[in-house]
Design a protein around this nucleic acid. Structure first.
Lengths: 143, 143
DNA sequence: ACAAAATCAGATTTTTTTATCTGATTAAAG
DNA sequence: CTTTAATCAGATAAAAAAATCTGATTTTGT
């Protein structure tokens, strides 16, 4: 079995989506996020720590502390989160795993896959948390 | 980091592509394949064994034995190889990892991602080894 | 018949990913 | 000032994926 994003990245995306759904100025604990999303608390915590370093979320220590977005949802693109956690390797490496694959030395799937990859990249670049927020809130409720 | 296909699957695709490039009726050893593709011999061997069970390649034991395609290249689709090794989970599961994601309970990316996923699936379903063979030979030479 | 070269089968090792644990630090609240 | 509840940091454990090893079996060729 394979997957597009690592668990870390999936959880990161879920958590940030969750953060985008709360009221601006509010703060939520990793414990709440973990419970609502049904994922390991310490793991969420770790991931959000790394996203803090990346400047995507901000954290407040101590009692009543927690996490929130570091900037306006309209300025955070999905690709930023993916880049911070999984990196952009998936958009640069050969889908068949040929290390030599390149534009002037293409693997048999290079053209066709490249097209899809570009579409995926553009989608993740185009989508900001702001655009997903409405959908997110509606759905989070039922988690 | 993440990846579309597992290493197993990448190697499997590479190996089968290699098999599609040899003369019909010919046989190549896992050793040759491993050397040409620069991947672990025993691993290739294992993968080709499983593809033998799946009916995609056929094997001949003993001295001068080796592997070859089990059917005409025009009848083997890339999706068959992926399905045999990695399974089709990647085409059925939520890209954000929400376990509840479904058509009537979609995650925020459901629509847009679904479109891409369908395109990818159709590409892998449409491409047969026969169609890739020309490109493959040209490229294999330089490995 | 025998030796060589290959697949086959299954166990084992190594590496990476995922998850958990422990303790330190920080800050709010009584 | 003390307690409490949170992040933070780093070590550790568990699970999964990738790679390797060992030996058995099969078949060709001498």
């Amino acid at each position: 079995m394979t997957v597009i994003f690592s668990k870390k990245c999936e959880y990161g995306l879920q958590a940030v989506l969750y953060l985008s759904a709360i009221e601006p100025g509010q703060i939520v604990s990793s414990d709440e996020i973990a419970k609502k999303l049904g994922i390991p608390k310490e793991f969420v915590s770790k991931i959000l720590q790394s996203l803090t370093e990346s400047g995507i979320v901000s954290s407040k220590k101590g009692k009543a502390g927690g996490f929130s977005l570091a900037k306006e949802p309209g300025k955070i693109r999905l690709i930023d989160i993916v880049a911070a956690i999984d990196g952009l390797g998936i958009f640069n490496s050969c889908v068949l795993g040929f290390p030599q694959c390149s534009p002037d030395h293409p693997c048999p799937l290079h053209e066709k896959w490249g097209k899809l990859r570009t579409e995926a990249y553009e989608m993740l670049t185009g989508e900001t948390l702001d655009e997903l927020r409405g959908k997110t809130m509606k759905k989070m409720k039922s988690l």
